[in-house]
Design a protein around this nucleic acid. Structure first.
Lengths: 106, 106
DNA sequence: TTAATCGTCAACCAAATGGTTGAATATTAA
DNA sequence: TTAATATTCAACCATTTGGTTGACGATTAA
């Protein structure tokens, strides 16, 4: 869990990678097309896409010589939930939180 | 906006810093007390707290020789909103959250 | 078959990150 | 006043990160 959060948050910490995710919101894209608006090299974009894939924020599928990139926003659930818990449960003691989780989801 | 998201997400990308935030859910703490459960040096924890402060995830206030650290979860709104815009999160990962909290406080 | 396209790999580089230690600064207690 | 406590600073180190370039394998088009 902790390692997954590490990967997700650090993947999201880079503005190029966040912009890629926003681009993929509209449609699936080939690696070359993802790279087009950026001024960095194709290899650099390819590395960014690997990082996003490792964090499971996108999925990549090769069809022919084209590798398609697809947004997988569900993978953000863990991070989103973690963040939400810090806001929602502020000033509630841990026992209360755990009791709440136990009661509601078990 | 982008720079603020950079700061917030990269602050959250470190497990020590996330654990500190969870600790501060319970109560405000002095720097020395924040550092106590960790095996790294006090100076290292002090740096982590500076990063959290720069990202506005915590506030630090000096009273006498003690510097109190207070969670400021509202600062996560920007990141939280950004993530929410990328997808709908109907499947909240509460089991994962619970596992994380148990691991953190066992 | 040959040439172009798609994408990754490998080696390299500069800068950032997370850690250390020892000294320094404030503040409080004896 | 002196000593202890709380925290940061400065210099340093190893590793990671985000970038480059050129070569390479795979696939499609001419």
């Amino acid at each position: 869990m902790t390692a997954a959060l590490d990967q997700i948050f650090s993947a999201l910490a880079d503005p190029t990678r966040r912009q890629i995710l926003v681009m993929l919101l509209e449609d699936d894209m080939a690696v070359t097309d993802v790279a087009e608006p950026f001024e960095i090299s194709l290899a650099a974009v390819s590395k960014h896409l690997s990082i996003l894939t490792a964090a499971k924020l996108i999925q990549q599928e090769r069809r022919g010589r084209v590798k398609w990139c697809k947004l997988d926003p569900q993978a953000m659930n863990a991070a989103w939930t973690w963040m939400q818990s810090l806001g929602q449960f502020e000033h509630i003691d841990l026992d209360g939180l755990e009791a709440y989780l136990e009661e509601t989801f078990k």
